[in-house]
Design a protein around this nucleic acid. Structure first.
Length: 404
RNA sequence: GAGAGCGUAGCUCAGCUGGCAGAGCAGUGGACUGUGGAUCCACGGGUCGCGGGUUCGACUCCCGUCGCUCUCCCCA
């Protein structure tokens, strides 16, 4: 055991794990570029208030999961627990609303939540998030879900996409009222936490996992039955588009999200095998305004890169490796051969191991080289190298170009 | 924040009801100084997570602590 260790929930990403991580990351990034999202790099630290205002004072994230601290001037700062808050702040601060009628952004990077680590959960983890600012059109919600679906399909992930609408400031208050009233009638069957939530945040009772709560909530009034005309229209249009695009989904009237800023569409892609959300998102039509910007509707999603990586078997396919094996006193020549091969775009490992040909071939084998490039006295004298196919064992003599 | 299990070589692990710390793989060297992907031989490597306690004696039992894994809560 080494003297120093990384912190709980903070880990080094390397080897096969890194390859799977990178594979997922590049898949998602590639997809977002196809949809013409523009990348931005956001700060990892913001004023605490940015998160408190956007995510919501009453949420678990804000109440107990943030890495918050004071800087030297006594200001309260926090490591970002998610990306949307910072993206919205950046959107407003840089006045992106003035440049185009709508804006499509994505970002990738570490997020921090002070929680107990477990399968697919870390204190520092990575998300790729995408946000569309400036359109209320359900077409946008549909495209966001389409991206999510395509990502998951390409990974062959066994996942269900669940959707719901949680209304807007017109229709949600009456619904909350109705739900609270109902919850009072079944209070005897609710867990302690839910009794507490019944008044303050009744929506959250809907996705409580305690069996008795689940049971008690089955007959509860549903948000979808309370949607105002605009929200109902939005929701049914979204479903039409999803059907048009052949995207399978399941309506889950009990789906709510842990963050306060959502309106209308919310969705989650839940892994069937792991029972965790891999990708989630939704619409947040008031957040930009609440954060001090002009009224601007928005939709977005975030993927947990480590979580998605759990489902990936393959890694990144790498270019074939050329293991350059010098034997004898031919290092000068070996350097030139390596230079020549690399200038042709080949991935070359020049063996640093001073040993006989046999040992170095063993090394080449262990490093998974596709080819061994043999360079000895004979090769140097004839200005060529010997290319050995490590699978078939066939060898060829290849002239070095005169330029070298 | 609450609960359970686990920390022994670089890795995977064995080590009995307390009694000299082990194996496989990896590494290094080598009859082979121009031919590998299971040839052979030899060698190195340990604060048994850390601290305390019990004991003649602790890898083993007890307490604490740190870390890992998992569950609950919650979430990506």
């Amino acid at each position: 055991m080494s003297e120093f260790q990384s912190l709980r929930g903070f880990h080094d990403l390397l080897g096969e794990e890194f390859k799977r991580f990178k594979y997922v990351s590049e898949l998602v990034r590639g997809k977002l570029k196809l949809y013409n999202f523009e990348e931005i790099v956001l700060p990892v630290v913001e004023y605490l208030e940015v998160f408190r205002r956007s995510i919501g004072e009453a949420t678990d994230i804000v109440q107990k999961e943030m890495f918050a601290f004071q800087d030297r001037k006594g200001r309260w700062l926090a490591l970002r627990p998610e990306g949307t808050a910072g993206a919205v702040r950046a959107y407003i601060q840089n006045r992106l609303y003035a440049l185009k009628p709508y804006t499509k952004l994505f970002y990738e990077g570490p997020m921090f939540r002070y929680e107990r680590p477990q399968a697919g959960r870390y204190r520092q983890f990575h998300q790729i998030g995408a946000e569309v600012f400036g359109s209320i059109d359900p077409l946008v919600d549909a495209e966001i879900i389409q991206i999510v679906y395509e990502i998951l399909s390409e990974l062959n992930a066994k996942v269900i996409i669940e959707i719901n609408s949680i209304g807007c400031k017109v229709c949600r208050p009456p619904y909350k009222e109705a739900l609270s009233t109902y919850l009072r009638t079944v209070a005897g069957h609710l867990c302690e936490v839910c009794i507490d939530r019944s008044d303050r945040n009744p929506l959250r009772v809907l996705d409580c996992k305690v069996p008795t709560c689940k049971e008690a909530v089955k007959e509860a009034p549903k948000m979808v039955d309370f949607l105002c005309n605009e929200c109902r229209e939005h929701y049914s249009k979204l479903k039409e588009y999803l059907t048009l695009l052949s995207i399978p989904y399941r309506e889950n009237p009990h789906l709510v999200r842990g963050l306060d800023y959502y309106t209308k569409t919310v969705f989650e892609a839940v892994s069937e095998e792991l029972d965790v959300a891999l990708i989630a998102g939704g619409r947040y039509d008031y957040l930009v305004e609440e954060m001090g910007g002009p009224p601007t509707p928005a939709v977005g999603f975030a993927v947990g890169v480590e979580r998605l990586s759990l489902l990936v078997r393959e890694g990144l396919t790498e270019d074939p490796l050329y293991m350059l094996i010098p034997f004898g006193d031919v290092m000068d020549y070996a350097l030139l051969v390596a230079k020549a091969l690399r200038s042709e775009g080949k991935r070359v490992e020049l063996s640093y191991k001073r040993a006989g040909l046999k040992k170095q071939l063993e090394l080449a084998n262990r490093l998974g080289a596709k080819y061994a490039v043999l360079v000895g006295e004979e090769e140097r004298a004839g200005n060529f190298y010997t290319l050995k196919d490590m699978e078939t064992g066939h060898q060829l003599k290849i002239e070095l170009s005169p330029a070298m």
